[in-house]
Simulated scan of single mutants.
Amino acid sequence: MNLHDYDDWLMPLVTALGAAAVGVVVYLVLRPITRRLSRHSPVANAVNRQLDKPLRWLLPLMAVQVALEGAADDLPHVDGVRQLVTVLLIAAFTAAAIAAVRGVADAVAVLHPQDVADNLEARRVLTQTRVLARIAIGVALFAGIAFILMTFPRARQFGASLLASAGLSALVIGLAAKSVFGNLLAGLQIALSQPIRIDDVLIVQGEWGRVEEITSTYVVMKIWDERRLVIPLQWFIDNPFQNWTRTTSQIIGSVFFWVDYTTDLEPLRKEATRLAQGSKDFDGRVCLLQVVDTSERAMKLRLIVSSPSAGQSWDLCCLLREGLIALMQREHPGALPRLRAEMQGPTDTHDHRGELEARLAGQRTGRSEAAVNNDTGMTSLTAPTGGVLPPAEPPR
């Protein structure tokens, strides 16, 4: 085969290049028009932005594909060129479908902003959109790969079988990758039932944090100290966890104190109410101080106070705890827990004042403690550290 065999390609090549140029021109003409028209619709605007790059290739490839259909079938390697253009066209269509899905997801995020006081509905819709968008993108990729395989004669049967028996293939592959597909199904279940949503406040394995991202296989939770906890989706289906924002972000925080039995609770209640009402983190629903437990030494107080969100509740509880401690230290030092002990003397008529006076007199005259004890009838032992232990038993 020599170069003259390709002379017949000159006209089809020029036609294909001309068609590609027409496709580029159509893209350049339609781009500003679609941008101007989509400004009035958030959905159209988001989809248009995402489709911008795929359309740069899709329109010229469509024009080239149409031009090659008119080429003679006896041209050298014409089947290979057509197949190459078809593969590129399928890839461009797949990219456009993925871009459209992402554009719709972006539009939903714009229509349901999270930066509002009551964002429960926005978080619900956003969670469903993100999970379903990832599933749709996976389906589009699967279909694109299957259609590309069908363009090859030897793999056509495999591509057709891949599409026709997708359920059976998923079952067979699922046996080998149970955890992966289990997380995918868990993601679909979470998107529909929504036990968790984006920006929910969770307690998972003792860690407090917010749901930052929900992918098709795992959840990323941002811990309060900026760490990230990555949890498989299947874990949320199989294990219990706390969701502090399941129905509302409002929450009630608790502050505990141990105080003495002689403590007057009314000043503490007034101070707690004053501090709560002066804080921006208090929503005015609950501020209550009660005795919730007692022991042989003190009584336990619980102060409950309500806040609009978990973060504000933490700050408000810290404020009230510090304020009430400062009040007790400043004005009610007797409110702090105390250890009480009762000193019992002998049962006879022995004069303790006489004992004390004799000891003091002995110290002034320099008499030894043994001599004083002998006079008073007391027996004492000296501790190893040099201190004097109390008498082993009352004098008789």
Rank of each mutant, 00 (worst) to 15 (best):
M1R: 11
N2A: 07
L3G: 09
H4G: 05
D5R: 12
D5K: 12
D8A: 07
W9V: 02
L13R: 02
L13G: 14
T15W: 07
T15P: 03
A16P: 00
A19K: 15
V24M: 14
V25G: 04
V25C: 05
V26A: 11
P32E: 11
P32C: 03
I33Y: 09
T34K: 10
S38F: 00
A44V: 04
L55N: 14
M62Q: 03
D79P: 05
D79C: 00
Q83C: 00
A91D: 00
A91I: 01
A97V: 10
I98F: 08
R102T: 15
A107C: 06
L111N: 03
D115H: 10
V116Q: 05
L120E: 07
A122E: 13
R123N: 09
R124F: 08
V131K: 15
R134Q: 15
A136W: 06
V139P: 06
A143T: 05
G144E: 06
I145R: 03
F147I: 02
T151S: 05
R154V: 03
R156M: 12
F158M: 13
A160D: 01
S161L: 01
L162F: 05
L163N: 00
G167K: 01
A170I: 12
A170L: 11
A170W: 11
L171V: 07
V172Y: 03
V172T: 05
I173S: 07
G182L: 10
L184E: 04
G187N: 04
L188N: 00
S193A: 04
D200K: 06
V201S: 08
E212K: 06
T215D: 13
T217V: 13
V220R: 13
V220H: 05
K222N: 07
P232L: 14
P232E: 13
W235N: 02
F236I: 05
I237D: 12
P240D: 13
T248L: 05
G253T: 07
G253N: 11
Y261A: 05
Y261P: 09
R269M: 13
T273C: 10
T273A: 15
G278Y: 13
F282N: 09
D283C: 06
L288P: 00
L288Y: 08
R297H: 09
M299Y: 03
M299C: 10
K300G: 10
K300H: 09
L301N: 00
I304M: 14
I304G: 02
S306Q: 11
S307L: 08
S307F: 05
P308C: 04
W314Q: 01
C317I: 12
I325G: 01
A326C: 08
G334E: 14
R340V: 08
G345F: 12
G345W: 14
R353C: 06
R353E: 15
G354S: 14
E355M: 09
A358H: 12
A370W: 03
N373R: 15
S380Q: 04
L381R: 12
A383D: 01
L389V: 07
P394D: 15
